[in-house]
Design a protein around this nucleic acid. Structure first.
Lengths: 242, 242
DNA sequence: AGGCGTCTGTACGCTACCGCACAGATTAAG
DNA sequence: CTTAATCTGTGCGGTAGCGTACAGACGCCT
């Protein structure tokens, strides 16, 4: 809330920028708070800012005509919200919801577009990130088709934990069900099983992950695939991006 | 097979290029035949060429460790196969299979990369196409989660027909099942129903679509959404791309 | 402490889809 | 024409997940 201990470098993309690029952008970066559940952008509307999450996680949620929903991808401190800004579509194809409260730095959409059009290292970085996001979406599609609620819950928990500083997350089962596009009761059952196996521990809107390796074992391959592709495409550059 | 009546302009992206860009690319475009079922690129391997389909359709198929599969997106004469080439990932995240026999023009990957890096109209065009593809993938993910086999079959047929010159397609139910990631029997049932409704007509590996409007009615919203986004992002430029 | 709203657990019938098994139909090959 | 291969139709039991309904548990508020 205060911005205490917040630093744009906590976002991997910003951190990977060349010093010149970073310094030019820095004055326009604005720290904002991201409260749980906030709709950063409604589906189909234009984004005025792009967001670089630091301690928050944003969920790209697709909501259908009948109200049914499904998460397409998540964006945390490894990425950026607002891909269509530089890809050229202008409007977001999905709703963006804060899935885990925290902070982000935002930047006026037009400014990012300008930077992108310089066709330098920043452009290459953003495109590689987009490629990683595409892979996450593709994997989600396959996972939705073939895997059980329990497997998907494991995947979802792991992807979330990877984007958070500790193994705790504030989340009701109802919300998780929305993300996965399944019934709340289905999540209750799966979560109960994971708890009885000692992999997680939860109480009223709060989940602690106790055994990452165990979760990964019960998860489908989807988590592993996404993670390894992110690692491959977006290694830790630390300001020495080429 | 002979290239008779084949012209790069049949591919919408090539057609949308400025004359200067097109003329520079033209000598390096190579007409190739795309036989049904050919694996143009295996998942995880590098593409040596990018492909601009004219009369063929390529399916981006994700195959999992246990052999289960699902189609992520289709690429026809509106697009290009080989997005990771210019996005920076190098390797394809999915298998690319010829879903409908025909032709395509191919171009050495490095040449396209060079053109892309000029950061001109061609780059903007390719990025807008990528954005459209992302939307198709996102919609596929949601469709996999929430819609019935019959609805998905309708969507799939419509997306295919949109990329073909007539309302005929050569395809066994087994292959369609692979694409949709469902059982062959499920496709048999759904197809039987559509046939009894007079919407399609099929015989041993060949399907005729009789009633497009009727199919669209029985399809989920996913088809409509994808189509309208493609139309929005990729209007017919006809050589006057900006 | 008491009370209320929210979150979680459980149960029951229902449906879509799966896995399997096999029979009929169509086309291709000898 | 016969045979083989492939493609399509159908049936049956099993199961995961859905919709609904309701009860208990937790935590916040006064």
């Amino acid at each position: 809330m205060t911005g205490f201990l917040q630093d744009p470098h906590q976002n991997h993309l910003l951190d990977a920028l060349l010093k010149v690029d970073y310094d030019r952008l820095f004055p326009d970066l604005e720290l904002v708070e991201m409260p749980l559940g906030e709709v950063v952008c409604e589906s189909g509307s234009k984004l005025k800012y792009v967001y670089f999450p630091t301690t928050s996680i944003i969920s790209l949620l697709y909501v259908m005509e009948d109200g049914a929903s499904a998460e397409i991808a998540v964006v945390g401190n490894e990425g950026i919200l607002g891909i269509p800004i530089f890809m050229g579509g202008e409007t977001m194809p999905s709703r963006a919801v804060v899935q885990s409260a925290g902070h982000a730095y935002r930047l006026k959409a037009q400014l990012l577009k300008n930077e992108f059009n310089l066709a330098g290292p920043l452009q290459r970085l953003l495109l590689r990130y987009t490629q990683a996001l595409i892979i996450q979406m593709a994997q989600t599609a396959v996972c939705n088709r073939h895997h059980s609620v329990e497997q998907q819950l494991c995947r979802w928990l792991l992807l979330s934990i990877d984007r958070l500083p500790d193994n705790e997350l504030s989340m009701t089962q109802e919300l998780i069900a929305n993300m996965l596009g399944v019934r709340r009761e289905g999540v209750t059952q799966a979560a109960g099983k994971l708890q009885s196996l000692g992999l997680i521990n939860y109480r009223r809107g709060h989940i602690s992950v106790l055994d990452l390796a165990g979760l990964e074992k019960r998860s489908c391959e989807c988590y592993r695939v996404v993670k390894s592709e992110y690692d491959r495409l977006l290694p830790a550059f630390h300001g020495i991006a080429h």
